[in-house]
Nucleic acid binder design. Structure first.
Length: 231
DNA sequence: AACGGTAGCAACCGCCAAGTT
DNA sequence: CAACTTGGCGGTTGCTACCGT
């Protein structure tokens, strides 16, 4: 086997002779106590600190999807279903973003739930509607092209990873969406007008602009799109 | 009871972007 | 600046429990 790609090489090296498959209770305990003791250390250090013969990815996944005490277990409620439907319509298969709007739910949970339940509901609904899918093209915000020197620099604590600007905008999209998805009866533009200074999350856009007209045009597009999504 | 099909979910894989050396 | 490392994501796989025959 010839591996030329350097990243693949290192990953291969890391994967040599590490345990795979289902986690045992003992491994869970080791990982849990390691995280509780050391907090958010580098995942690459976790297997060693915890005394686990697992790769960093496996540890991370186990914690994020299963061991994290903040995870909400049990069946999805109706309002969660509804929110997933709407967000999926808007964002497509961007499970981490969708899960971010569902407290205690993980991306893996949402993805599995969608594949097992909701996707079938969508198909059934489509059939009922005469086969005309109501899916809009998922929102995929364009990467920002703001020159680096113009970007606002925020103080970074320690060696915190710099946030991908695309992700930042997307997360802001979804947090902002609360106002819409939350069933606010106000016109969306009105809503924005009333809170522009307080809640508008696009610092970069606000920086652009001071041109509120442009921003309001964007809001108007959102309104059009959302009116198709929110029934 | 045995078998096959299916659903649900945990875990892995491959890839990518960003950070570090 | 290139090579390497790391964290994160979406897609996919495989195991297991359940159900109907």
């Amino acid at each position: 086997m010839i591996v030329t790609d350097s990243a693949s090489k290192s990953q291969l090296r890391a994967s040599v002779s590490v345990r795979k498959g289902a986690w045992t209770r003992v491994e869970d305990e080791l990982l849990r106590s390691c995280i509780e003791k050391h907090g958010s250390v580098r995942w690459s250090k976790v297997p060693q600190l915890a005394g686990l013969n697992r790769c960093r990815k496996s540890c991370r996944l186990r914690w994020i999807n299963y061991l994290n005490p903040q995870i909400k277990r049990g069946t999805f409620e109706e309002d969660e279903d509804d929110l997933i439907f709407r967000l999926h319509k808007l964002l497509g298969n961007r499970w981490s973003l969708i899960a971010g709007r569902l407290p205690g739910r993980t991306a893996n949970d949402v993805k599995n739930y969608w594949n097992a339940h909701l996707s079938k509901k969508v198909v059934a609904r489509d059939k009922k509607d005469g086969g005309s899918s109501r899916f809009a093209t998922p929102m995929r915000p364009e990467p920002q092209t703001i020159p680096a020197r113009e970007k606002k620099t925020s103080p970074v604590e320690g060696k915190q990873r710099k946030i991908n600007p695309v992700t930042t905008v997307e997360e802001d999209h979804t947090s902002w969406l609360d106002h819409f998805i939350g069933g606010n009866e106000k016109s969306h533009t009105e809503l924005f007008e009333g809170h522009a200074d307080a809640v508008f999350p696009y610092d970069d856009l606000a920086e652009f602009g001071k041109d509120k007209g442009l921003i309001l045009e964007g809001i108007s597009r959102w309104e059009n799109m959302l009116s198709d999504i929110i029934i």
